[in-house]
Simulated scan of single mutants.
Amino acid sequence: MEEQQQIKLEQHIATQARKTEEASGAAKLCARVSAKENLFSLHSGSAFYRLQCIVAHVTFTNLKCNFTDRKIGNFQHCHIKAVNRTHKYISVYANIYTKPLNNVSINIRSMRYNSGYKPFFFDVTFDACKFLKKPRHPILILFYNTLKDRSNMNHTCPYNHDIIVDKLYTGDHELEFTRYLPVPMGDYAIFVIFYVYNVEACTVNLYLRITN
Rank of each mutant, 00 (worst) to 15 (best):
N95C: 13
I90L: 08
T86N: 10
R209N: 07
T211P: 04
T156W: 00
G171P: 00
N154S: 10
N154Y: 03
C78W: 02
T86I: 09
L206S: 06
A201T: 07
Y93E: 06
T178R: 06
N95L: 11
L140C: 02
K118H: 11
F120W: 05
L175G: 03
V204N: 02
L175R: 01
L168N: 05
T156N: 02
S151T: 02
A189T: 10
D166L: 05
R209T: 08
A201L: 07
Y188N: 03
S91E: 03
F131K: 02
P135F: 00
N102Q: 13
H79Q: 04
S110G: 11
F177N: 10
R209G: 09
C129D: 10
N154W: 03
I90S: 05
S110A: 14
H77Q: 04
A94Q: 09
Y207F: 11
N95K: 12
F121E: 10
Y159M: 09
S110P: 10
L181D: 15
T86H: 09
L132A: 05
N102E: 11
S151E: 00
E174F: 03
K167G: 00
I141T: 15
A189K: 10
D162A: 04
L101S: 12
G116M: 12
S115I: 12
P100F: 00
H155S: 06
F122L: 07
I141K: 15
